[in-house]
Amino acid sequence: MKRYKPFGCIVDGLDSLREYERIAGFLQIARRALANNAFDGVLTMVGVIMGQWVGGVERPGTVILTGIATSISIGVSGLWGAYLAESAERGRELADLEKISLTDLGETKIGRASRVAVVVVSLVDGLSPFLSSLIVLTPFFLASLIDNLLVSYVLSMGLALLSLFVLGMYLGHISGRSLVGYGLRTAFAGVVAIVITRLLPTE
């Protein structure tokens, strides 16, 4: 008798994803895209927020609107760019393989794995900068609770440095080296961005 599995389709989906990963090998690319684009997202938002701080913007609504617009743009940029680049690269690889094996591989596991790789890498490329930049913006969503815009600005930069530190630790974990060492290195990039933008002339 066939037993009912409550999460059967999820388990099957994950198994297929694992199999496609074995064939197309997209995990490493997605991991690199995650770290690289999340780093971009945080530092871009540092630039946007510091620019408004230095420029004397005093309405949290303005910071939020500019911030969200930037997050959307950087997310769309990541998604679109990765989709175009990845589909072109994967398409060429598949065409090469089809030429060697004299077979149409589009409807085989290899063809599907290639398409799944494009979707996964594009999503990671788009979502990682979008979400990481929104994290930095969080103190402005809570501006009515914090009730002091300067504190929101400072908290936002603190959150950016913390995000960069965690991202560095993740890279340290991947490379099997010092978590704190990597964390400090990525956080230092944030400090450099903050200091340079703070020194910009306001008039």
């Binding site: 199999e19 074995r22 064939i23 393989l97 094996s101 004299l102 077979t103 591989l105 596991k109 290899i110």
Partner: peptide, 8 residues
């Protein structure tokens, strides 16, 4: 059979 290296 001629097959790609992956799937193995």
């Amino acid at each position: 059979v001629l097959k790609p290296l992956d799937p193995s």
